[in-house]
């Protein structure tokens, strides 16, 4: 059963007032679909009942957040994007004395570790500090642990090869009991922080901001607002990477950037 627009608004208002998360700027098709999914998982036919459940059980909201937000990710998603970073963007980053990177919407961290591996192979990791943020604390906890299930590695290593990786991938992790934990040298370069793009502001200056497949969940207005935050957070001549099917849609923001790679959706802030 689809939910009506007033039902969804009432539920989102409750979530904002009780827990401080504002999803009103999220794109509707996906938002409605995720709400239907959560209601199904919770075996609650209505959003009103779901709201009551969330209020009566102190653990229920974290459960809601984990299942409502999309937390799908994989290492080296879009290998051509990583190949482009390695070939085209890293040689420019190399000219900066210190490299701050913000990975916004990092989910459980797989793409952050992918980038850390590339930075290490390019000899840049020692000069980097990576800040990886997500709005979901459960994601950050998993990301911090730096553990992936070994059965996933086969596909990840294939993606790594497709991205142009030629090293022995086993050097980047230690396998134990069906899991693989990333090496300490990679983990200690990454700071995982809770940050909500809708509500939180600038927290540092960056040479590279990566925010891939997050804007697909935002309406245009929210996209423009968050692009404003990224523009403010970027150093002059810093790079912004979006998902390969996302673009800077706002003409006002477009004017602040030039295109570094059109197919890979990498933009460079003008001086």
């Amino acid at each position: 059963m689809p939910f009506s627009i007033p039902q969804v608004h009432a539920f989102l208002n409750l979530v904002r007032e009780k827990w401080g998360y504002d999803f009103s700027g999220y794109a509707e098709a996906s938002l409605h679909r995720r709400l239907r999914r959560v209601a199904e998982l919770a075996h609650t036919p209505s959003l009103e009942k779901l709201g009551k459940r969330l209020q009566s059980d102190p653990h229920a909201f974290n459960w809601f957040l984990e299942n409502f937000t999309v937390n799908v990710t994989e290492m080296f998603r879009d290998p051509e994007f990583y190949a482009c970073l390695r070939k085209q963007i890293f040689p420019v980053l190399e000219t900066f004395p210190h490299i701050n990177i913000w990975h916004a919407g990092c989910s459980t961290g797989e793409e952050v570790y992918s980038m850390a591996i590339l930075l290490q192979e390019s000899g840049l990791l020692s000069r980097c500090r990576i800040y990886a943020t997500d709005l979901n604390p459960a994601n950050l906890e998993k990301a911090r642990a730096g553990i992936v299930a070994t059965p996933m590695l086969k596909e990840y290593i294939q993606n790594y090869r497709l991205s142009g990786g030629v090293e022995d991938f086993t050097q980047y992790y230690t396998a134990l009991y069906g899991n693989a934990i990333f090496q300490k040298e990679l983990r200690e370069k990454i700071t995982f922080l809770q940050h909500n793009l809708v509500a939180d502001g600038v927290f540092n200056e960056f040479q590279l901001i990566i925010c891939r497949n997050v804007f697909i969940y935002f309406k245009r207005n929210l996209q423009e607002q968050v692009l404003g935050l990224f523009t403010e957070s970027l150093a002059p001549l810093g790079f912004l990477a979006l998902g390969t099917k996302e673009s800077i849609l706002s003409a006002r923001i477009q004017a602040r950037f030039e295109v570094a790679s059109r197919p890979m959706k990498i933009y460079r802030k003008k001086y």
Binding site: E28, S30, V70, R77, D78, I216, Y217, G243, K245
Partner: peptide
């Protein structure tokens, strides 16, 4: 439909992509 995304339709007549399960 692009690889590795779900393809959705918004009521305003635009496409929407979702990278979910």
């Amino acid at each position: 439909a692009p690889q590795n995304y779900h393809l959705l339709v918004e009521t305003d007549g635009n496409f929407a992509l979702e990278y979910s399960e």
